[in-house]
Nucleic acid binder design. Structure first.
Length: 872
RNA sequence: GCCCGGAUGGCGGAACGGUAGACGCCGCGGCCUUAAAAGCCGCUGCCCCGUCAGGGGCGUGCGGGUUCGAAUCCCGCUCCGGGCACCA
């Protein structure tokens, strides 16, 4: 007998699918679209094409493809496209190192990705393929930029920004991790530069609120985004500096501690700082301090544990609640880009202010006493009496609950007419009072900042703006798009865009007045490209617009999005922002792009993340050529729950290959044993119409092993269907099919010799093929055709017959005092009394009941009996 | 520090509060073969009693609790992984 040759089988079916365009789905209204079916948009995050695909890609697209197949066979019209996120730094850095232009390296890599996706047999609608580096695509990226610009959602401004010295470009906040560049790990520094931003903060509230509109996202991804957006409620309060004639608003989440403010701190980047100290004796010291802070890396400055530093400014502000003059400082623990860049310092009730007060020997004034619970917990009777409070605050012999800084709740002290009130109540009252007095108001602050989108790099979409000496910033007219990325000689980053060197391209005429003007030379962050690609798939060939509203209305939102958790914040947040902005402009009808999100876990090797430097990488191509795509794909889905990671082992792939070989072998053996047409045309017809059924009479006649095999097949269908829907438990779906194949082998010898037995075997084998199809589509197609003459991908997902899931007898476990002592077989509908009687008779049970009296009898029908006894 | 995950045989992992360890890997034994590979069949949590048949005990990171019954629920920890963090 011949053996399982995956390469041969896989190539053959791949050709069928390519020739017939099996996975192509037109848009509604076009020929071939089935309006009667519900739609499903199944999408995996598009790959960044660099070199060859790795196992992470294999897993992502294997998982996504399984979902796509499952949806198709459950009656959905499934759109499942593919593209490439092909602008980006790695290709550019590679160009600098090797001299190979980014375009050349990128397109070579795309070819490799496309070839491998085909060899893996991923069911992709190639008619919708896109690559973000092509002018056909980035024309529309530029178009969206202009829409945002016209809406005031894209703007250019000078601001302190994060600069990566290695990549010589600015970075978005989201691209700075622990003060280092997300890409290259270099410590970033702060620079004051004129840059382009998208106004993501305009959607901060909606980005939070619309989590409600999602169907199913992993909870931890939502949490991460919520933390990133970082909404906090509080109040904005104005402190006035009379000497300078300036008002300093601050944001505080604790207006209830206003009376405890004993000093005031502003950030080194604060715009008023320079003027405030100009021509004073503190000017020099302040200047020196500001310079030293500017030299520090973002990481060093972010270190919470190091001692507080700062410089007094020699002037004061007035606390609006009590008229006190409190001294001003500049200190780097106050950040310019959160709140207003200035804080009121309440050392008694804030860790950082306390540390600063200690370092600079500043007064600490307690304004909240420990609440009742705290008092109870530290046996000292801390006086809640407001008149005595002052004494307790400065004492250095305080017991536990009284220690400062105190961040809990309790009654107010030293707070004028708010004394005695609980601080939570005082919070509202103080805000009300501030509002009435015009010295402050309730306010909400977000951690989220606007998205810095300009980059001083080459390999990205040019920003479609022209700078005219007369007209200022002029958008390139839509009919002149795309602004094509020019070729340059030198990609090396020099702190300004390499596009500056393309003088012929840079020098242009103002679209507005015709005078000579210069093009914007910064390019866009590549996250801009990937923030809308899922819309372009819907109408990929459209040359009039980025997508038609009808196409978007039909297919959006993405029903199932699949990708790595590493994009939990950046990509997903940006894409959500884009869709909200586009919705407000009327270009799409949904406000959330991804209704359901699935994040797959990372595959490791020898317990470690794969990397070229560790030499533990796995090349999918090697395994595909050795064991076949089906084995590699099925293995990554079998390793464990797909949302969790897993460690790659060669033995594991071989095990799956063995399982697939067994299925193939029994199939070809059966094909030889009897012609499919033996079961008549109605055999194949039955598959088409019922999904899963046998020729007339066979099931009814089946007994013994034949019956057991049919039962197992229906059990597998039921189990697989349930686990598929239950959070994509692919590992147990595959295990169920393995069990079925094992049962086929157990019963094979007895059944293969006669016609009915062969029918049952054929049924079981076809069922196994049908169930494994989402993971091993080639082998499934081969086996299913051998068994039924039909095409498995055109066959509905099978449904188990409830009659076949029932068995006549059930095993009842008998416990005595919770310990399993025996098992009995009883009729399916046995009565409680009958079961109990049989249970007591069971040999081993009877022994354990000797010399005892029964206290309680628990009977779980069809499952177990627990006899609770005690010595008589 | 705060917020999420996770911990089950030699390994990856299964188990609506009801037979812990499905399925796979590794290992061991048998069959086939001149031999090997491949394949097929079987065994495989740990310990103890028994010649066998079989029986008993222990066991899901640790300590408590709820329950007839807990890997699963509750309380308190430990360790590992991830995210956020001078955010006022």
């Amino acid at each position: 007998m011949s053996r399982y040759e995956p390469r041969e089988i896989e190539g053959r079916w791949q050709r069928v699918w390519a020739d017939e365009g099996t996975w192509q789905v037109p848009n509604p209204g076009e020929p071939g679209y089935d309006e009667s079916k519900p739609k499903a948009y199944v999408l995996e995050m598009l790959p960044y094409p660099s070199g060859e695909p790795h196992v992470g890609h294999l897993k992502c697209y294997s998982v996504g493809d399984a979902i796509a197949h499952f949806r198709r066979r459950n009656g959905f019209e499934v759109i499942h496209p593919m593209g490439y996120d092909s602008f980006g730094l790695p290709a550019e850095n590679n160009a600098i190192k090797t001299g190979v232009p980014p375009l050349v390296a990128t397109e070579k890599s795309i070819d490799s990705f496309r070839r491998q996706f085909t060899e893996w047999g991923i069911s992709i609608d190639w008619s919708r393929e896109l690559a973000t580096h092509t002018p056909e695509y980035y024309r529309w990226t530029q178009w969206i930029f202009l829409q945002l610009f016209n809406e005031g959602l894209a703007y250019r401004t000078k601001a302190p920004v994060q600069w990566c010295p290695q990549d010589a470009t600015v970075l978005a906040n989201e691209q700075v991790v622990d003060g280092r560049c997300e890409r290259c790990g270099t410590e970033v520094v702060t620079r004051n530069l004129r840059q382009w931003f998208f106004r993501t903060t305009a959607y901060a509230e909606q980005l939070l609120a619309d989590f409600e509109k999602l169907e199913s996202w992993p909870e931890h991804v939502i949490t991460m985004q919520k933390n990133w957006i970082g909404r906090s409620e509080g109040a904005e309060v104005t402190f006035r500096c009379d000497e300078a004639g300036l008002d300093f608003p601050v944001f505080t989440t604790r207006p209830d501690t206003l009376f405890g403010a004993t000093f005031f701190v502003i950030a080194p980047e604060h715009p008023e700082l320079e003027g405030l100290v100009a021509d004073t004796e503190t000017e020099e010291a302040v200047q020196e301090y500001v310079n030293s802070v500017a030299r520090e890396s973002v990481q060093a400055r972010g270190d919470e544990s190091r001692p507080k530093t700062g410089v007094p400014l020699g002037c004061t502000v007035t606390n609006p609640v009590n008229g006190e003059e409190i001294p001003m400082f500049v200190a780097d623990y106050v950040l310019m880009d959160y709140g207003t860049g200035a804080v009121m310092a309440v050392p008694a009730h804030d860790e950082r202010d306390y540390a600063f007060a200690e370092a600079f020997d500043l007064p600490v004034r307690r304004v909240i006493q420990p609440g009742p619970e705290e008092v109870a917990s530290d046996r000292g009777e801390a006086s809640a009496d407001s008149s005595e409070a002052e004494a307790g605050a400065e004492g250095d012999d305080q017991p536990d609950g009284d220690s400062l800084p105190y961040t809990g709740d309790g009654p107010m002290v030293s707070s004028g007419r708010f004394d005695g009130l609980n601080n939570r109540e005082a919070y509202d009252r103080i805000v009300e009072w501030l509002d009435e007095e015009g010295r402050g108001s309730a306010s909400i602050n977000f951690r989220l900042r606007d998205w810095l989108v300009s980059r001083q790099r080459y390999w990205g979409a040019p920003i479609p703006i022209v700078h005219c000496p007369a007209c200022g910033m002029v958008p390139v007219p839509e009919d002149q798009l795309p602004v094509v990325l020019p070729e340059v000689e030198d990609y090396a980053p020099k702190g300004q865009s390499p596009l500056e060197a393309a003088t012929e391209w840079v020098e242009t005429d103002c679209p507005s007045c015709g005078a000579s003007a210069r093009r914007e030379t910064d390019t866009m962050d590549t996250f801009v490209d990937s923030s809308w690609y899922f819309l372009r798939y819907l109408d990929a060939g459209n040359t009039e617009m980025p997508w038609s509203r009808e196409a978007a209305d039909h297919w959006m939102p993405v029903d199932q999005y699949i990708g790595g958790v590493e994009h939990a914040i950046l990509h997903l947040l940006y894409a959500r922002f884009f869709v909200k902005a586009l919705a407000d402009m009327g270009h799409v009808g949904v406000v959330e792009p991804f209704a359901n999100l699935f994040t797959q876990g990372m595959i490791t090797r020898d317990g470690a993340k794969m990397s070229k430097s560790k030499g533990n990488t796995v090349s999918p191509a090697d395994y595909v050529s050795r064991h076949g795509a089906d084995a590699a794909r099925t293995y990554v889905c079998f390793m464990g729950p797909p949302e969790r990671g897993g460690d790659w082992t060669d033995e594991g792939v071989e095990g799956v290959h063995r399982f697939l070989s067994r299925l193939w072998r029994v199939s070809s053996e059966l094909a030889e044993a009897g012609d499919v047409t033996d079961s008549g045309d109605d055999g194949a017809a039955a598959w088409r119409s019922f999904g899963l059924s046998l020729p007339q009479g066979v099931a009814e006649r089946a007994e013994g092993e034949a019956r057991e095999l049919l039962t197992k097949a229906h059990w597998a269908v039921d189990k697989a269907s349930r686990d598929f829907s239950r959070g994509f438990q692919f590992n147990t779906v595959i295990a169920a099919v393995m069990e079925l194949v094992n049962e086929i082998y157990r019963t094979r010898d007895g059944l293969i010799t006669e016609e009915d037995g062969r029918q049952c075997l054929r049924f079981a084998v076809a069922t196994a093929a049908s169930l494994i199809q989402p993971f091993s589509p080639h082998l499934a197609a081969e086996v299913f055709q051998q068994m039924t003459g039909d095409r498995v991908w055109e066959t509905p997902w099978p449904v188990a017959d409830p009659e076949m899931l029932r068995s006549d007898t059930v095993t009842i476990v008998i416990q005595v005092n919770g310990k399993v002592r025996d098992r009995i077989e009883v009729g399916e509908s046995a009565e409680k009394e009958e079961i109990l009687a049989l249970a007591r008779e069971a040999e081993n049970v009877a022994r354990h009941l000797e010399g005892t009296e029964t206290v309680k009898e628990i009977v779980v029908p069809g499952k177990l009996v627990n006899l609770v006894v005690r010595p008589a």
